[in-house]
Design a protein around this nucleic acid. Structure first.
Lengths: 400, 400
DNA sequence: ACAGTTTCCCGTAAATGC
DNA sequence: TGCATTTACGGGAAACTG
């Protein structure tokens, strides 16, 4: 009889954003042949916090053609709005819970008259999380995952007052599913092992290891300003947005430790490279690492983190200062010297390369890039003047 | 007594987007000393199309401290919602007008009892344009500009049923003001002359020339898929978003014909360049042109159009295929050969460079870039293998 | 079918509340 | 004051509607 509360975000049911439409359907599984009268269903939400359901919240059940004539009612165009009462403030049962841990129930009520008796029927959705901004989605979805991973209870809205631990085996399955349900490829054992190490530290066998809710989603990772789940969820977004086809092909190793990366690249011929997600970028980024070999030995080089910010930082004045043309002898020269009429280009554009300039947004992005490059393990930076040129189709990107 | 209807878009008053808050203020200029009773003001909108004003639409006037004690009422948090009636459809007075040419009046009503007589007072805003999506803003704002440029009539809501022509002198002033009111710099005579030529064709003296509303905003420019105003407005957005500081300094010539560009660059030393807005990009773009000189003569070269799309097109697979490193002898080599374990990089990434790949968005952007480069006058493309490398800080962009 | 128009809703930024 | 949460609204896309 129960039916999940529907998308909104199609891959993330059971999370409802206030002001965004959602759909709900109830089906009557018990058949009363004598039920030929109108059966009116009312949908409502628990009153732990004051939400109102907007839209038609009562409906008459009707025959479902697809489903051997069982009765059902589908509520479309429902939205939730928080009722900000005069005294203000949330009135949830347990104030220690953050909003994305607060669970709510959508209930469906009806009355059946059977053999002269009035019977109140009631059913409800699985617990849902209500958010007010999409930026709360990662945490809200984590709650849904944790709940459904660890309990079959249909309405334990206090689940997060004392959230149970999960085993690595359970978590691994859920993590892989996050990829396989939105792309054509889940996670390999090797990728999962890298993730296990991030959550649990080095260990021979992760099977049976326990992972707390805090570790999964609430605490920041050691030395990082973000939780494991937020990091991973942003990577999922990055994959879907920019590199879905490559991911589907299995061309992205993605989760691999730097040690393992070197170990597997080392026996390979020079020029062999792999793609890996950035471990330091909260927003999701990808880098590539390759092997080089020459007479003096073997080198591993890793590109800068490649993400949205990277491209956003290509502000015009930076371009103008660094425009090169390759002459007939393959030497880079800069053809731009004077901004018309006779302003040296450094004078025109140089000052914008200082943080005190008013080109605020461009610069703040640029700083982040420089920061990333400062970390030697994350960038092919060497103290020499050696220059990398990274081509982009007709366009190419260089860094040094 | 009249008061413009306030922002929303702070630089674009008199345009109201449905569902977005706006503010309105009325002041009573006539002073009635005996008016010590409560003077209630009601705000409403004309009924040519069915809009409702949401928010507190009645208010009591009160003393204004800043303004020598005159009475005023300020309506905040007003929003407009269209009343979609059962029969549907717009019910505007003149169905031939598009929404951004439909003018509406916000009216303020009150009743004054003076010496035993009831006096109905009413005032209204300047005509406003109501839009439902911000993408209608350019055309809506053009309507406001044209109206206020050509009439002092306080409430001619049928203005656009037969819009008067403007002279170039009027239009030039308005165009320059579009820049000077949102940046620190208006348009020079030379820039304006380039714009005049776009609107009116070659001419010795544009003063007094007539420009129709259609020419300004309704018809597409010859051979282009967009109107003059839409093109210009997107450039204003580009300037504000990415190159405000450079524009304020006067470092961007911006509007200059290709003939004039060559004429002024020719006598200058090699390496002299200037920045100019793209004439072919609807969305607003900027290019730079420079002079080169060698034994065989003088060359003018223009970069690709530099805009949002340009950077968005830097998809990962394109980067992977074109990654170069410069070796000790300044020769570009590609260190990436095999995707781990032993997939030739062309096999892994090459197929995504075809439009039939599923990397839809990346590719559609990429195609636009190639297109732009196909136009010889717009790009430094030469049939030789000569390569341009355009640096971007630690990062640089190359095209060939 | 189609074009003008509106609705939907994410994601960033700002405001608000506690 | 600082952090958690909500509101605001631009902008891209989908849905609507004659």
């Amino acid at each position: 009889e129960r039916q999940p509360c529907m998308p909104m975000h199609p891959d993330r049911p059971l999370v409802i954003k206030t002001g965004v439409q959602f759909t709900n359907k109830v089906r009557l599984l018990v058949k009363f042949p004598e039920l030929n009268y109108q059966l009116k269903i009312k949908v409502c939400i628990d009153k732990s916090r004051k939400f109102n359901i907007l839209g038609t919240n009562t409906k008459v059940m009707n025959m479902e053609e697809s489903n051997n004539g069982s009765l059902s009612a589908e509520f479309k165009h429902l939205t939730l709005r928080e009722q900000r009462c005069g005294n203000g403030g949330r009135t949830n049962s347990d104030a220690s819970l953050i909003v994305t841990e607060e669970l709510h129930l959508i209930t469906f009520e009806t009355e059946v008259y059977h053999q002269g008796l009035k019977i109140d029927l009631e059913t409800h959705s699985l617990p849902v999380v209500v958010i007010s901004n999409i930026c709360q989605m990662p945490n809200a979805w984590a709650s849904i995952l944790w709940y459904n991973m660890l309990t079959n209870h249909p309405k334990n809205v206090n689940f997060f007052t004392k959230p149970p631990v999960g085993t690595w085996d359970q978590v691994a399955e859920v993590l892989s599913w996050q990829f396989s349900s939105t792309t054509k490829r889940g996670l390999t054992i090797e990728q999962l092992t890298t993730l296990a190490e991030k959550l649990l530290g080095p260990c021979v066998n992760y099977s049976g290891c326990q992972i707390t809710w805090a570790k999964f989603c609430k605490e920041n990772m050691a030395g990082k300003g973000f939780s494991f789940w937020v990091w991973l969820d942003n990577i999922i977004d990055l994959v879907k947005k920019y590199i879905l086809a490559l991911w589907n092909e299995g061309y992205i190793m993605g989760f691999i430790s730097k040690e393992r990366e070197r170990a597997i690249l080392s026996p390979k011929p020079p020029g062999t490279f792999l793609l890996r997600f950035s471990e330091s970028s909260k927003e999701g980024g990808i880098t590539f690492t390759w092997v080089e070999k020459d007479i003096s030995g073997e080198y591993f080089r890793t590109s800068c983190c490649f993400d949205d910010l990277f491209f956003f930082s290509c502000a015009l004045f930076v371009v103008m200062l660094n425009f090169f043309i390759m002459d007939a002898t393959n030497i880079l020269v800069s053809p731009l010297v004077y901004l018309y009429p006779e302003i040296p280009k450094e004078e025109a554009f140089g000052k914008y390369c200082r943080p005190e300039s008013q080109a605020r947004r461009e610069l703040s992005s640029l700083e982040s890039i420089n920061e990333g490059q400062g970390k030697p393990q994350n960038c092919a930076h060497t103290p020499t003047d050696r220059v990398l040129v990274m081509g982009v189709g007709n366009v190419s990107i260089r860094f040094h």
